[in-house]
Each structure stands twice: as structure tokens, then as C-alpha cells.
Amino acid sequence: MTMSPVETAIRTRVDAGSGALIGYLPVGFPDLDTSIDAAVALVENGVDIVELGLPYSDPVMDGLVIQRATQTALKNGFTLKQGFKAVERIRDRVNAPLLVMTYWNPVIQYGVERFAADLENAGGAGLITPDLIPDEAGEWMSASDAHELDRVFLAAPSSSPARMRQAVESSRGFVYAVSTMGITGARADVDAAARSVIARLREAGATSACVGVGISTPEQVADVLTYADGAIVGSRLVSGLAEGGVPAVAAIAAELATGKD
């Protein structure tokens, strides 16, 4: 199979001697239009791949910053239809590949096949699924194949070698290496565990592996890119958006992007 747009974007950055910067923002925070402008600003300021989060009522992998933002979006009346519309509007304005991050129940309720079809039509590249392990992903494996969508599964410091292999074999686009045993949110130190997860993913055959959870500074981005193919930043961008709106997100993205130099 040919490389997916996400994998190509990562490969291009790696071949240039660095790695990809992936930026997360949730749809609908602080409101729908601003969230779209903010995602566009990410790309215009050096983010290579957009990770667009769909707000969910019970986000067990997320820390307070993202919980608060997605709760606001839900209170404002976020719907999955708006989510697809947002993907479309962002892709109309910028060319970077866009992955949707979603907990699994909304996908089941929408219909896995229908979700995949609408995501493809909206121009989305695939899904990051924090609470779906490959063992439970049968329906998603077929739907993502049928619609040529990426599927990004997680690998954790606690994952066994067999599960590392399974994550590598099941994922397309990249494997999401969770840097630490914990939930999303800025941390002063990105765990040494991250380096080890990437090393173990490489042993399991990974050619595209990115680190997420806890990354918030250009220095951390630079450090992660010395051993991983991409660095994922979320909470720092969300808190920036909460405090200073789109200009703040743009400035933070530009600053984080210096970590790729």
C-alpha cells in the first residue's frame, strides 16, 4: 500500500532531518468558528498535522485543561455533524493532513461505516482512538481499509512486546507513543519512558512513531524529535486558546515549531 498523507507528511519532515509537529485542538472550543480559525492558525504557524478532537462527555484519557474545553464545547451544543463540517472547513483552508481524535462511543452511535464514509468525504485522514485497542477494533479495521483512512492506536510504557507489535501492525499513519503513565496535560519533564517506548516500537517494526502526552515547550519538541518521528502537543495549545484566543495559539504554535529546527 502507498504511504498515507499523514505518513508522507511525517516522512518528509524526518527526511529533512527533523520530525513532524502535531497539534491538538478540540472542535467547538471556545466556539465553533474560533476553533476552526485556531486549527488553521496551527498549520499557518508550522504545525504539520492537525489532531482535531471531538468533545465527549466522559474523556478518561484527558486532564483538566482538555476536560474543561471539551465540556464547554458540549455545553455550547457540539454535535458530530458540526465535527465533520469543521474538518471540511479546515481542509478547505489549509492543506495539512487532519486526523480526528475521538473516544469510541460516538463512533459506534454514528455507525462505524457511516462515520468512516463521512470522515473521508469531509477530507479527514483518519482517527486517533484513545479508548479503542486493536483487540476490539474489528469493525474499524474494515471500515478504515474500505475508506483508506489512517488508524492511530496507542502504545504505552506498560505495553508488552506482543502488544507493541500489535499496535505497530494495526496502526496506519503512525503509532501514538504515550510518553508517561498518565493523562494529557503539560509536564515539566517528558518521561524517559517515552524514549524507551519509541525504542521498543522500533524493535517491533515501527517506521512511523510519534510521542504525545505532556509535551508543551519547543525544547521538549526538539528533544522528542531526536528519537521519535513526531511530537504531539495538546493541552498547551488548548490553554493558550482559552487565555489568548487565536493569536495566542498562533504564537505558541510558531514557538513550538522552532523545536523542529
Binding site: M61, D131, L132, E136, A156, R163
Partner: peptide, 14 residues
């Protein structure tokens, strides 16, 4: 039934 949790917890559940 099943297991719909973050990968980080699978080792502990096992």
C-alpha cells in the same frame, strides 16, 4: 463486555 480502555491500563487488567 470487552475492554474499551486506554492501552496504558491493559497490562494492569491482564
Amino acid at each position: 463486555g470487552g475492554r474499551f480502555v486506554p492501552e496504558s491500563l491493559i497490562a494492569a487488567l491482564d
